[in-house]
Amino acid sequence: MTGGRLPARLGNLVPVARGRAFLPILAAGVLVLVVPQVWFADSEYTTSLAVQALAFAGYAVGFNLIFGTTNQLFLCVGALAGIGAYGTGILSNHASLPIWVGIVAGTIVAAAVGGLMSWVAVRRSLGVIFTGVLTLAFSFAFQDLLFGQQHLTGGSTGQTLTAAAASLADNQIGGYYLFGAVVIGFLIIFRLLQISHFGWAFRALRDDELAAELAGVNVARYRICAAVIGSAMIGLTGGLYAYSEGFISPPTFAFDQVDVTVLVLVAFGGLGTLLGPLIAAVVFAFVDNALVNSGQLRELIYGAIIVVIFLGFRRGVPQTLGAIVRRFIPHDKVGTRWRLPLSVRQRERS
């Protein structure tokens, strides 16, 4: 399968209705489009919460692509986002380049850094934990760098993006639609990868890396590809976040702010699932908002929620709820949604 295209014989196993694979994304897109009109377009506060949720959904989709599908624990989501954001900030503030140049450059650098780390990890055949600690070390070193290089980053006081369009910084709903479009775009890319030869390779190497390698899947190449694409998503989201907020500071991209949240989101939504990260981001936006007034108890409750969720719903909350629903509704009435061939599903269930 290294050659790129899916062999015809495997192709037959993919459900005929490929178009249906995109139905969930379409539904999510419509919701993203319509919800503000009927609900919060007039409330600046709620809109800013929604922007925040979508930005985290963007990070989570990228992380899901790296960890959920190819099992590389990248604990540097915040750092990659920071590369995108600070790339944007530094290029537009210090080099007076147009803001989109900064965003593109930041995205490319983030993708390159993510790809490099994946290459190193693959080369040295680091396991999940070791990749995690390596990227964690990078994460912390990046934070130190942000604090240390004051003339470039503004240190702990942060940096205002002078070139950020006033129209976007002031116009929250514009930011909302920008992030909405980006997240939907990410989901489309994610699905496209899933139904192409990438999807098969990802599934194979997540199940059993050695077996996949023996079956001719170029594990290293697919891993690095996933890391590059996922890191680009994270970097782009970070750059756009800097653009829409107009101000960045190191804590915005700190490990405990971004990575912990993203890990919780992806695990909550179900590893490797399409809509999981988006659903989780929305749910946790509500949870966060509900906990705003609990003050000092906030952290305690947040932790308790994480524990309860992971004790009760080990495969991701949407999946578990879906399984419960399916138990009560006969199988054929659920409809022929896009799904894996029966043989694969049975194997995964066991």
Binding site: V260, L263, V264, A267, E299, G303, I306
Partner: peptide
């Protein structure tokens, strides 16, 4: 990881 993370928060 997730359970001990939650515990750490608690």
């Amino acid at each position: 990881l997730m359970l001990t993370l939650g515990l750490a928060f608690v």
